[in-house]
Design a binder for these strands. Structure first.
Lengths: 172, 172
DNA sequence: CGCAAACCCTACTAAAACACTATGAATTAG
DNA sequence: CTAATTCATAGTGTTTTAGTAGGGTTTGCG
């Protein structure tokens, strides 16, 4: 399935966005998301670009700009997010085709196919709304405060992390 | 979860072994497996080494040697095989610890953890016996013939594949 | 107007992982 | 003894990952 930090970051950022995108006409800047979640801005820009092109978020340019969810939270599933940034989470291990062994399906084809369906179904069954609800529940029903726009110093790029390996690189 | 060709090859080879390991005292040589499944022998040796160290197979050295399943098929689950060759299919994306975000668990921790449990449970629920039964069923209940030991020419190494990319590299 | 905050885009890169290959040693049947 | 086989370890080319770098474009605001 290929779950990497890309997918992880994307989901994390979308959750952060969902948690802070509570007033219309008041978009959430990428910088604020990255600071909260400790992710490189430049890297995240690429992921958000894809999320936008896949219609999961909408953007507002110019000062005070940022992002909105393009759909209500329950209408965005985790699979949508991962697929947007990772693309080729191809159904089977054989790349969709059934040419795994010479020109025929390999003897384990069904296994991988079934496994993949399991994962996809699960990820499809979980929406951003579910994640947010679960998070809120864990926090005792308290959502994080809405930060004021807050002007920052210039050269915001490169402001971010230098996150070390810190254990896992990919996973799931 | 990190499903790569390593895990795929390992399961495939184990299935092949299971299908041909039907007489005790008549081990299945790696070469025969690799020829049938079209896998590089030298590569497979490494995987089988790990399978053996994990107690899934036993080996017989010397001419006429080869491998046996170390346990009855129903007692070997797919997760055992994948774990043997891939190791670190760490439970959470945070590498087991909960230090994904600074020193606390990240807001998506539960998601990845749950997803991982899904996959592990599935793979744990499928045994080699299941795969073989399924395969036999698909073949109309006919198991492949037991090939005679068959002496081959020397320099059997490098005899194998040159398998091209052929589509997918990793997956699931 | 013009500055700067934000989004947008593309190309580049160090490091890791992957998928092998190569080589040789140890074991043992015939 | 010879050769078939397993066992072990080191090396290697390619791909992917996880970013950086460095611009550009839009637009609110003074």
């Amino acid at each position: 399935m290929r779950l990497t930090t890309k997918g992880r970051f994307a989901v994390t950022a979308m959750m952060d966005l969902a948690l802070h995108d509570r007033k219309i006409g008041d978009p959430v800047s990428l910088m604020s998301i990255c600071e909260r979640q400790n992710i490189s801005i430049s890297y995240m820009e690429q992921l958000f670009s894809r999320l936008r092109r896949h219609g999961l978020i909408s953007s507002v340019r110019g000062p005070g700009g940022g992002y909105h969810l393009a759909r209500p939270m329950p209408k965005i599933s985790v699979i949508d997010i991962i697929y947007a940034v990772d693309e080729h989470l191809d159904a089977t291990l054989c790349g969709g085709g059934e040419n795994c062994h010479n020109q025929t399906r390999c003897i384990t084809h069904d296994l991988w196919y079934a496994l993949n369906q399991q994962m996809l179904n699960y990820l499809r069954s979980v929406s951003l709304g579910d994640l947010v609800a679960q998070y809120a529940n864990r926090q005792g029903g308290v959502l994080p405060p809405l930060a004021s726009p807050a002007r920052r110093g210039r050269n915001f790029r490169n402001a971010a992390p230098k996150r070390k390996p810190e254990g896992a690189r990919d996973a799931a």
